[in-house]
Design a protein around this nucleic acid. Sequence first.
DNA 1: TTGTAAGCGTTATCAG
DNA 2: CTGATAACGCTTACAA
Lengths: 329, 329
Amino acid sequence: MAISIKDVAKMAEVSVATVSRVLNKNTNVKEETEKRVLDAIEKTGYKPNAIARSLKVKNTRTIGIMIPDISSNFFPEVVRGIEDVANEFNYNIILCNTDLDREKESKYLDILVEKQVDGIIYMSNTFTDQLAEKVKKMGIEIVLISTDYKDLPSITIDNVKASKDAVDYLIEKGYENIALIGGQMTDPNAGLPRYNGYINAMSHAGKTINKDFIVEGNYKFESGYTGMKKLLELEKKPDAVFTVSDEMAVGIIRAVLESGYKVPKDMAVIGFDNTNMAKMTYPSLTTLSQPLYEMGAVGMRLLTKLLNKEEVENHKIVLEHELIKRESA
Amino acid sequence: MAISIKDVAKMAEVSVATVSRVLNKNTNVKEETEKRVLDAIEKTGYKPNAIARSLKVKNTRTIGIMIPDISSNFFPEVVRGIEDVANEFNYNIILCNTDLDREKESKYLDILVEKQVDGIIYMSNTFTDQLAEKVKKMGIEIVLISTDYKDLPSITIDNVKASKDAVDYLIEKGYENIALIGGQMTDPNAGLPRYNGYINAMSHAGKTINKDFIVEGNYKFESGYTGMKKLLELEKKPDAVFTVSDEMAVGIIRAVLESGYKVPKDMAVIGFDNTNMAKMTYPSLTTLSQPLYEMGAVGMRLLTKLLNKEEVENHKIVLEHELIKRESA
DNA sequence: TTGTAAGCGTTATCAG
DNA sequence: CTGATAACGCTTACAA
C-alpha cells in the first residue's frame, strides 16, 4: 500500500488535518510543526493522492480535448498551445481522437464527464444540438476551437475574410484566371466560408466566376494533386490557384511541376494554414496562416476564465489571420 | 449537486449496493430489480463518478504520455498509435510536453503519479537513473518508446542497422561519395547509432571515411539546409547524402536545388522517419521508415499487459524498419 | 495553532 | 438476491 497522509501524520506526530494544512499552504501552522511535517513528507516520499483530493474538492484540474486526429496536420500545434497554457494554470489534458465519428465522440464525451474533467475543448467537428444539450445538462464548461455553435464560447478566424484576402493578393499581383480548390461545401467551418471568400474577392474585382475553375477537395494532398490535374487539362488553364489547405497546395505544386510548368511563374499557388511544412517545400508556400498555437492557447485561457467564473466580456473570439508571403505566389 | 448513485438508489427503491451491482454487471441481481435500476439511471441521467470509483478500486484507467513536443514531426503519429490501443482497452491518455527539459519532466512525472495514472509511456529523452529510481519507488509501470534504459520495457528500432541499410542502398546504387548529416553524437538514441550505421556501411564496402563528409545536425530543417550548404562548398563534393530526419532531408534538397543541382541526379538524398511530409515533397523522399504508429500501438499494448500482470516473454521489443524508395534516391 | 470527525461517491464485505 | 456499512485518501467545518 502506498503511503498516505496518515503515515505522514503519524511520523510527524500531528493530525492528518495539520498535514493537509501544510500541503495546502494554509498559513495557520506553527513554523516548527510545519518543518516536522515537511520532514516527514521528505522521509516517507509521500505524494498526495490527487484522486482523493478531487473527490473532496470536486475538481480534477484536468480538461478534455476532443479532436479528430492528432496525427493530421492541423492539430498538433493547437494542442501544444492548449497544453502550454493548461500547464501554466496547473491543468492537465486528456486527449481524445474522435475521427469525426459521432459515436466515438459521444462515447468520449461520456468518459470525460465520468472522469470529471473540469472543462472540454472541442475541435472535432461541427457541433450539434445533441452535444450541446448533453454538455449543458452535465454543467461542463466547453470552448470550441475552429468551429462555432450558437452562444457557446469559441475561437475562430474569419474564414471568408481570410479567403478573400488570399484571393485579393492574387488579383493585386495581376493574375487573371484564378482557380479555387476548396473544401467540401457541406463543411460549414472551412468549406463554405472559404468558398464564399473566393467568390467575394472575384466579384468584388469584377471578375467573372468560371465554374470550371472551382473544384472540390478534401484538404488532403491527393485531392490537391488530382484537382490540379483536372485544372491542367482545361483548354483554358488558370494562372493561379488558391486552395484551402497546405497539403492540397503541395499536391497542386507537384501536379504543376510534373507537367513541366513552373511555380509561381506559370502557376501561382496559395495554401492555407501555414503548417510546419509550408516553409520547407520548394518552392516554399505562400499561405494564409491561422494562428494555430495561439488558437489553442487563447482557447485554453478562455476556458480557465470560465472555470474561475471570471467575467469574460466576449465569448466569441475571432483571431487575426495573416497572409504569409513566400515563394509560391 | 450532480446526481449520484444514492439518487438512483432512492428512485429505484433499492440500496446503493444494488445499483453498484447493476453498474458493474454483477450477475446476482434479479432481472426485475435490474430493470428498475436501469430505468432510474435513464430517468435521472446518472453518470457514474469515475473519480470516486478510482479512489476505491485503486486504478484510474488513464495513462500518462511524456513526449518532448507534440507539435514536432515525429510524435503525433506514435501518440495516435498509443491512443488507439489505449482506447481499445478502455484507457485514456494524459499528454505531457516536456520540451526535453529535465525539470519539466520531473514535475510532470510527479503530477502523473499524484493523479494516479496506471502507467506511463515515455519518449521524452534519454532515461536517467534518477527517473528510473523515482518510477520504481512509485511502483508505476512504464514503457519507453524510441529510447532504451537498462531492463525497462522498451520499443525501439535497430538504429545502426537501419542506418546501415540506408547507406548500403546508396552504395548499391553506385554512389561514390556519400555524406552524412547526422544527429548529435551526444544523442544515444538517434545520433550515435545512426552515425555508427553509416560508418559500418562505409567500412564494410571498403570505402574510406572522409571526415569532411560528416556533419552534425539537430534534426531540424535549417540544420539540414546549412549542413548541405557546407557540403556544397567543398572542393570535392559528395554525390549522395544520408541524413537522419526527413526535415533535414528537405532542407538538404532545398540547398541542392538552390545551387542549381538536381535531386537525385547530382545529389541523392535519403531521409529518416517517413513522416507525412515525405511523400509530398518534390522530389518525394526516399527515407528510412520507422513504424511510428506501430511503435505507439505496440508500446501501449505492452503496457496493458504489464498492467494486467500478464506474462510477457520479452520486454525489449525491436520493431522492423523499412527503406521506402521514392524519388530522392 | 491544532485535532476530531463528517463527508465526497464509489465498491466490497458481510449478514441476512 | 439484497441491504448496511466500512473503507478508499483527502479537505474542511467546528471545537478546543
